[in-house]
Design a protein around this nucleic acid. Structure first.
Length: 154
DNA sequence: GCCAACGTTGGC
DNA sequence: GCCAACGTTGGC
């Protein structure tokens, strides 16, 4: 069992969308490192920190889990999609998607608070220059995030 | 809107 | 294979 942090822009897919639908296909990953995590490492049942990015209040907004294996990301074949990839083909799809299901919505754990927490300092999402939309989370970091989520917000 | 950081592209 | 130019991410 492994743990991951997955970034989503709430304008596109927010924790409330996941609450409403229970399950979301994670599409639009267009970075090879992140794709390789999906292809090689992410397993059914893995824990996910659902992170809101590029928004007024970035931070962890809920807990989810990996709910399917990978299949080709349909949006790469759709010329009307912003994620269309003209260099990809049905014969040799480049990009993958998988499903994520809700565990629970949490209080927002703001990025600013994460930055002040010494026990979270090793998290990849906090490292300088980090841009990856999917990053691995260690078991210790996972526990520390859960513990912090149990506290009242500042 | 700015800008630092990083990934990708493409000429050579 | 190098590397400059360009595009994207994402916090602020």
């Amino acid at each position: 069992m492994a743990f991951w942090l997955m970034k989503s822009e709430p304008d596109e897919a927010s924790i409330d969308d996941l609450v409403r639908l229970g399950r979301l296909p994670w599409t639009g990953v267009r970075n090879y490192q992140a794709r390789n995590f999906m292809r090689d490492a992410m397993q059914l049942g893995d824990g996910v920190l659902f992170y809101h990015s590029s928004c007024p209040q970035p931070g962890v907004a809920g807990l989810a889990e990996i709910a399917s294996g990978t299949v080709p990301d349909e949006t790469q074949f759709d010329p009307a999609s912003p994620y269309f990839d003209p260099k990809s083909s049905r014969d040799a799809p480049r990009w993958l998607q998988l499903d994520v299901s809700l565990v629970r919505k949490t209080r927002l754990l703001p990025l600013a608070e994460m930055r002040t927490a010494p026990e979270l300092a090793t998290m990849q999402v906090l490292q300088r220059g980090n841009r990856l939309s999917i990053t691995p989370v260690t078991a210790a970091e996972w526990r520390a995030v859960l513990k912090r989520l149990d506290r009242a917000s500042a």
